Computed example of a mutant assay.
Amino acid sequence: MNQVIEGLLSHRSIRKFTDEKLTQEQIYTIVKSAQQASSSSNVMAYSIIGITDQKLKNELYKVSGQKHVKNNAHMFVFCGDLHRINQLASSEEKASIKENMESTEQFIVATIDAALAAQNASVAAESMGLGICYIGSLRNDINRVNELLGLPEHVIPLFGLITGYPDHKPDIKPRLPLEAIYHENKYKSYDEQYPLIEAYDNEMKSYYEHRSSNTKVDTWSDQMIRKYSKPTRMDVTPFVKSKKLNKR
């Protein structure tokens, strides 16, 4: 097993960081690594906003409610971005690209491009001995984040990625069995998946009961039912459409 795979298999989200800051070289290396991710037709339909202003971090913390959003060495916000492409077009061309620009397909392209870039950034950061944590909770108030970052039409904040030197070493959270995720040639029936999920629930119950901090009694299945029983971030849909994305 090589070092890259070892690093991937030992990933854990870090939520406590030392006070040590990242150098400009480290930041640029992470961004350059992100840029080398695969991109649909080389559209590169994303932008990365580095958050260095502590006051801005504090405001983003108010949205997310997660302390590590304000206490970290560096924060990146990954945005789906078709604004650049739209700006390339003349006023006449804008009319001709409008339907395609506002389609679900191009929204998916922007989302995937940003996610691929972010994962490259994460692997690069962890290879430097840094810890990372994705921050989807920026979408708790997506309109406020949009306002704070001054995002134009065709640009939406998707998630944050915080980095820094770890100040704790949490346990590695188990994942679903490979056989539940990997389907060969056709999708497995739920009856085939159920025993795997049941085994995973037992593993997760043991993990939560015995991990080094924040112990509790819970299972993955129970978590998922609770999560999807309560509608959340329902303002994201009208927000995305207001930015002239995913309208068609």
Rank of each mutant, 00 (worst) to 15 (best):
G50K: 05
N86F: 15
D81W: 01
Y200T: 03
G164K: 08
L56K: 12
A118L: 12
N246V: 09
F78Y: 00
E6I: 05
N2T: 05
T232C: 15
I108Q: 10
R139H: 10
I108S: 11
P177Q: 00
E59S: 09
Y134W: 12
A121D: 01
T215W: 05
V77G: 05
K32P: 15
L22I: 03
E147W: 09
K241I: 04
G129S: 06
I132G: 14
V145N: 05
A37L: 08
D167R: 06
A37T: 05
P195I: 01
N2K: 04
V77E: 05
Y207K: 15
Y187N: 13
I97F: 10
N214T: 14
H11Y: 00
S212H: 09
Y187T: 11
S206V: 11
V109S: 14
Y28E: 15
A114R: 13
L88P: 14
I108F: 10
A124S: 10
K230M: 13
K205L: 12
H74A: 14
E20G: 07
S91R: 14
Q26D: 03
I142Q: 00
N100Y: 15
I142K: 06
S13L: 00
K70G: 03
E184P: 07
Y134C: 08
N72W: 03
A199M: 14
L130E: 10
L9C: 05
A180V: 02
A180L: 01
Q24R: 05
Q24Y: 02
S242M: 04
T18Q: 00
Q87T: 11
C79F: 06
K169F: 11
E92W: 07
F17P: 01
E147T: 15
T237R: 13
Q223I: 06
K67W: 13
D191F: 08
H83R: 15
N146P: 15
H168S: 14
K243G: 02
L130G: 08
I162N: 02
H168F: 06
K21Q: 09
I51S: 04
K94V: 08
I49N: 11
S213D: 11
E153L: 13
H154S: 14
E192A: 03
I156C: 08
Y61S: 06
A125P: 12
R211C: 12
K169E: 12
A115R: 08
K62H: 14
L138P: 07
M44D: 13
Y61L: 05
P166I: 00
